[in-house]
């Protein structure tokens, strides 16, 4: 246990992402209310986005914009250890777009379900299908 705690603390960002991920997964599988499933799906996707974003970060780094690109600090400016890795962040912009679109489609379908079945509780929908 003594070793375990520092292990968690040292990588707390990943653990936080993992916890969110599991919450999302649980919600998507176990919840009866379809809207809650959609919310869980959103949490699930956000967890992955956080996971990516945090992996690109470094301690004490700054945003990847060239500072002091001129003069005597010029050499320092292109030292990669100064900057956060921009690539995961860029990737996540795309992932966010994807997530939003999925959310949009899911909500639209949900609305249709409500219109057809009159409910968004899964068990009630299943009952109405069987009838």
């Amino acid at each position: 246990m003594a070793d375990f705690l520092p292990y968690i603390v040292a990588k707390y960002n990943y653990w936080a992402a993992l916890v969110l991920l599991l919450i999302g997964l649980y919600g998507m599988i176990a919840k009866n209310n379809l809207l809650k499933k959609v919310i869980a799906m959103s949490i699930f996707q956000s967890a992955i986005i956080l996971f990516y974003v945090s992996m690109g970060d470094k301690k004490g780094s700054t945003i990847p914009i060239l500072l002091h690109g001129h003069g005597e600090h010029g050499a320092l400016a292109i030292d990669p250890s100064q900057y956060a890795n921009p690539l995961p962040h860029v990737l996540m912009l795309t992932a966010i777009v994807v997530g939003v679109s999925t959310l949009g489609v899911a909500l639209a379908v949900l609305q249709k379900i409500h219109r057809v079945h009159g409910t968004i509780e899964e068990d009630e929908i299943l009952e109405s299908i069987e009838e």
């Binding site: 997964l25 998507m28 379809l34 499933k37 799906m41 699930f44 996707q45 999925t102 489609v105 899911a106 379908v109 949900l110 249709k112 379900i113 057809v116 079945h117 929908i125 299908i129």
Partner: peptide
């Protein structure tokens, strides 16, 4: 028929 409900399940599974 209940295409919407079937699709919804697919959205959830597909996203996972």
């Amino acid at each position: 028929g209940n295409a919407y409900y079937a699709t919804f399940k697919y959205i959830i599974m597909g996203t996972i």
